[in-house]
């Protein structure tokens, strides 16, 4: 499972940047039946969080109505150079993490 993160490397102080995430994941709803007629267990990403210098600046709670390979786009006001961290968690509690450095100058 991988992730695509679209975020600029640098921004001017106070600039509002756009961040986009695409996560490789089936987002199995838990409502579907498999070929054997049995329900396929739910397997979804439930939350996608963005931390900026350790502080939560954005979170998306996702439900089964989000597409396979979920996509989330949002904004952030850049003011300090530092780490932007992305954390996503599935309904089994498994957490994945990726980070990027944003240079503000």
């Amino acid at each position: 499972m991988s992730v695509l993160i679209n975020i600029p490397d640098s921004a001017a102080p106070g600039e509002i940047i756009e961040i986009k995430l695409l996560i490789q994941h089936p987002m199995e709803t838990g409502f579907r039946t498999g070929p054997d007629g049995a329900l396929v267990p739910r397997d979804i990403i439930e939350s996608v969080t963005c931390l900026y210098l350790g502080e939560e600046v954005f979170r998306a709670d996702l439900y089964p109505a989000i597409t396979a390979n979920p996509f989330v786009g949002f904004h952030l006001r850049a003011d300090t150079t530092g780490e932007i961290e992305f954390i996503w968690t599935d309904n089994a509690g498994v957490t994945s993490r990726e980070a990027r450095t944003l240079t503000v100058a």
Binding site: I16, K20, Y52, E55, V57, F58, A60, L62, A65, I66, T67, P70, F71, V72, G73, F74, H75, L76, R77
Partner: peptide, 11 residues
């Protein structure tokens, strides 16, 4: 810190 209240996704 969002700066702009604009989000997108695919449903």
């Amino acid at each position: 810190r969002s700066g702009l209240a604009a989000v997108e996704t695919r449903i």
